[in-house]
Simulated scan of single mutants.
Amino acid sequence: MGTEKYFEYYILGIAYWNYVEAVWSSIFALRYYMRTGQLEDTLLTPLTPLEYILGWSLLGIAVTTITSLPLVALAVIMGVIGAMVSGVAVSVVVFLLSITASFGLAYLIFGLTLVIREGDEVVSLIGNMAPLIGGLYFPITLLPGPLRYLSYVFPFTWGVDVLRALLTGSRPIFGVREELLILFVLTLLYLMLGVLSYKFLERTMRRKGIQGF
């Protein structure tokens, strides 16, 4: 595992995943509009789908911050916040990259749900699988080979690993600099793929008249 501070290791993972989940919750909001037949009206308003997802994500982040105060208090008691002071700048950068990458991934998944009628099940499957293979509960180095390689495609795998290395002194998978570079590349990739795929799929669905379009 590379750390003797498993409790801090686990708390940090939980807090981090709460923010990722807050961004992903925007998908379920849009899926709700699809099920109730309100998606078309929603997309015809002055706000773009990108602005809707961004707004819901920011609201989720604000709510998560408030509900995470007990975890912050626990971290202060355990001295995690004190360890954070020395690496606060890098930690903030990692957090922002992680949220941006998760936002792009959420946008990509929502675009795919426009052509998959069982979109809720797909999102739930990814959401339930991601924390298990993304290093939330234990290091991904303990995963079997195929699952470990799959975990590499998730941006939060690298985000939480870097944060843990900075704040708890755990051993990173590769190295902090290397993982920061990987996280940056994945952030750009998912943001670009998310926007492009959604625009393509939206045009396709409007033309075919499927899923409320």
Rank of each mutant, 00 (worst) to 15 (best):
M1I: 08
K208Y: 14
E178W: 11
G119L: 06
G82A: 02
L181S: 04
G212T: 01
P49S: 05
G60W: 00
V72L: 13
L96F: 15
I109S: 02
T48Y: 04
G145R: 13
G134R: 09
G212S: 00
A15G: 06
Y152P: 02
T45I: 02
G127Y: 04
P49Q: 06
M129N: 06
T204N: 13
G60N: 00
M1K: 08
Y33K: 13
T187H: 10
K5P: 05
L59Q: 07
W56Q: 09
Y32W: 10
S91F: 03
R35W: 01
Y16L: 03
F174N: 09
R171W: 14
T187W: 09
V80T: 04
V153N: 12
G104R: 04
Y52W: 12
V93K: 11
Y152G: 03
L193R: 04
I116M: 15
I109F: 14
L74T: 03
Y32A: 10
L186W: 13
T36D: 08
V20G: 01
F103H: 04
I11Q: 09
V92R: 09
V162T: 01
M205K: 12
T187R: 11
M205A: 15
L47S: 10
I77A: 05
V88Q: 09
T67W: 06
A62F: 11
F154S: 02
A73W: 10
S26H: 05
Y152T: 04
I14H: 09
L59I: 12
E121S: 08
L47M: 12
M205D: 02
V115T: 15
L147T: 06
L44S: 14
Q38W: 11
I61G: 01
M34Y: 07
Y198F: 15
T67K: 08
A165Y: 14
L112K: 02
V195A: 15
Y137D: 09
I11F: 11
Y107F: 15
M192N: 14
V160F: 01
A106K: 00
F200S: 08
R171Q: 15
L183T: 05
F154K: 07
D41Y: 10
I133A: 05
E121Q: 11
F156D: 10
T36N: 07
S151Q: 11
G135T: 06
T204H: 14
E51L: 07
L50S: 02
Y198Q: 02
P144G: 01
E118W: 15
F138V: 09
